[in-house]
């Protein structure tokens, strides 16, 4: 049993994405294999140096950086979305792999769920 959670919504816009993250952490807590795929505007979750004091929300970047510690298997970012938003390995969170063909990924998990 392996799960892929797909985040295609931008950060901070709605609570749906944070709920997806909670779900990923909960699966990891019970040692279920879970990975995250960021596509579309969702890749912006991964950008470094988010400074959230002005919007009174917790930093998604910092929350997300706990994923490997909690046992989330992998984090993927769709290559074309990264290119569109000027994201590279250098300005993204550590530990993210760029997925050239994300639609292939969707078929490799026993359960794939889109957030939001």
């Amino acid at each position: 049993m392996s799960t892929l959670i797909v985040i295609d919504q931008p950060p901070y816009g709605t609570w749906a994405g944070r709920e997806a993250l909670d779900m990923a952490f909960s699966l990891a807590a019970f040692d279920q294999s879970v990975s995250l795929l960021f596509t579309g505007a969702g890749v912006n979750w991964l950008r470094k140096s988010q400074k959230t004091d002005g919007i009174e929300q917790k930093s998604i970047e910092k929350n997300l950086s706990a994923a490997p510690i909690f046992g989330v298997k992998a984090m993927f970012a769709e290559a074309s979305a990264c290119a569109r938003y000027g994201l590279t390995i250098e300005n993204m969170l550590a530990g993210v792999a760029i997925a050239e063909n994300s639609s292939n990924l969707l078929h490799q998990y026993s359960h794939t769920a889109f957030s939001g």
Binding site: A29, A66, I69, F70
Partner: peptide, 23 residues
């Protein structure tokens, strides 16, 4: 230190144990 890095408490007991084990 965990809170300053991740802006969250470990959300559950299991994840608390995992995080301590990791560190």
């Amino acid at each position: 230190i965990f809170y300053s890095k991740h802006e969250m408490s470990p959300p559950s007991n299991r994840l608390f144990v995992k995080a301590v084990k990791e560190a």
